[in-house]
Write a protein that binds this DNA or RNA. Structure first.
Lengths: 217, 217
DNA sequence: GTAAAAAAAGCTGTTTTCACCCTATACTAA
DNA sequence: TTAGTATAGGGTGAAAACAGCTTTTTTTAC
């Protein structure tokens, strides 16, 4: 069985690493390195000069235009190209950051060549390549990402009605009329909700209500 | 080499499935089913009557107290117990939901017994067990969780940035500072957006922006 | 280089929102 | 009974938001 070679580009500011890697990958006979670049800006400049790569290997820390920005640019301008982050860092922050920026996978520079080739082939075919390193961090990220979320806030029916009407172009005066209550009473509801949601403005209140899925628009 | 059996509990409202699964897992000789329960409330009642399980297999849809609530309760009261979600659904929402609630892994009921045993052993040892099914959804979740960069109607980058910052508890003065612009300039943006969106208040603006999916929260 | 256009900043009001005081009623529980 | 609490209503002053119009600066086009 024969499969097309995967066309890739390498973006990394360490010239020796970049070129060594290019040789190494070319030797595998499954990967074709179209071009390499010093940083994101260099990549943008070179991209039109070659066929579009299937995968771009992307370093994170680079001068001029770093990996996060470069990845965002790629996904905005060539969403079909898959970005595989390739970095020395195994901390949560760069990993989550690159994935959020749009990378489809994350490999360490200390990986074995064979593993990198598999990752490149995997990401070329399925757009994403998740390994052990990444999956745990991903999970912890979404689990921690909801800090104050599971604090069910007790609202009485009137407060809830008021909250709904708040999510509109109406003034408090108009809301008071619609609820057949004095504007001062509405004031009390507002104060109470500001405290419960820990906000200081109607806009903050609306955003919180939507985030907590108390109100649907 | 000999390893301790993994102690588990099964929470699922389908009695036959629950008991059949218990037999099946017991036969593997690597897993010991301590008890099973009809739903979350039943689980909470039975938990003190047995040794603490290493892993709880948790269904999602159950009467009285569902899998999300039950998992949250477990992680709040017995954070050492690992929850493995076990469901028929392979949609994004239940998977992400259970993981956010604190589950360390997610398996389909249509899995092979051997795979389930591996998952249980994996989660008992490493607290998390991520398979192909889950990892892709996790990644897409964090990638979609923030910006929607499309600008369908005519907003320039500054107006869009302003609009984003509007969806918060910040005052216009603070927004002006963050954008390094004079409050008067911010005033111009506000006026322009009020016209474009045909609203008369910041709240109306925020609601419109969200409805038009120009901003994600 | 200059004129037109667009963006940024300024000025002056009015209205709305917000914060913090307060009173009255009615229901509940010690 | 009395204290506590939830709900409705009241008043004032300050801050923010809103509206409309003018001027300066920057960009762009000719």
């Amino acid at each position: 069985m024969h499969t097309e070679k995967v066309n890739i580009a390498i973006v990394d500011d360490h010239t020796l690493f970049r070129q060594g890697l290019a040789h190494l990958l070319t030797e595998s006979n499954e990967i074709n390195v179209l071009f390499d670049a010093d940083n994101g800006a260099d990549m943008i400049k070179k991209l039109p000069l070659y066929p579009l790569p299937d995968v771009i290997l992307m370093d994170i820390t680079m001068p001029v235009m770093d990996g996060y920005e470069s990845t965002k640019w790629i996904k905005a301008n060539h969403p079909g190209i898959n970005v595989l982050a390739l970095s020395m860092f195994e901390e949560d922050k760069p990993i989550i950051g690159m994935l959020k920026s749009g990378a489809g996978g994350y490999m360490l520079k200390q990986s074995k060549a064979g593993d990198l080739v598999s990752a490149i082939k995997g990401i070329a075919k399925q757009s994403i390549y998740i390994n052990e390193l990444v999956s745990g961090k991903l999970l912890r990220n979404i689990q921690n990402n909801q800090p104050a979320k599971n604090t069910p806030i007790g609202l009485n029916p009137n407060e809830l009605k008021f909250l709904e009407l708040c999510c509109s172009d109406l003034t408090y005066k108009q809301i008071a009329d619609m609820m057949n209550l004095s504007p001062h009473t509405i004031d009390n509801y507002r104060e109470a909700l500001f405290q419960k949601f820990e906000v200081k403005s109607r806009t903050g209140l609306v955003i919180s209500a939507l985030k907590n899925e108390l109100i649907k628009i």
